[in-house]
Amino acid sequence: MSNVVFLFENFNPNIRTTFFRHKSYTNYLGYSEFAIKNTNTEHGLFGIIDKFPDIENMKDIEPINQHIIKLANNKIPIFRCTISLSEYDAIRLGYDSKEKWKELFKLKLSSFADKLNVKYHDLQYCRSSSFRKWTSPFASYDLEQTKI
């Protein structure tokens, strides 16, 4: 049994560079070549944002990008989290599909809110799941895409 790679990043909103970090990250999440794309659209984004109730079926994610740029400009703290498994474990335990990750994240969302000291109904997130090949056990990725 190998461990889960869990990276949690905090960004200081008062530093100028954090704005540029968030600026293009939504596009990266949605259109990354490793992201598992939605069935109807070209991007792989999904999540809960009050302004955009149906993200999965949105054809263009530019408004979401603009929304996040506005948040970054207003110095609202944004956290990033990456959770990944080794290829062997992902296939063995069924975490090679998007829906399984969705279930897992929904289960743990309340504890996330608790640890971030945020009310559960205030929490907003957008995410994508991707599939890549391991090279080493220390969280470095190979850029080759593997077929599912």
Partner: peptide, 28 residues
């Protein structure tokens, strides 16, 4: 899986999360 998380609350919140809390999340 890669996630971006923020809060829609209007009052100011702390941007730093303690390492202990992060470790707890990892364990969960």
């Amino acid at each position: 899986m890669q996630v971006m998380i923020w809060s829609k609350q209007k009052y100011k919140m702390n941007y730093f999360v303690d390492y202990k809390e992060v470790n707890k999340m990892r364990e969960e």
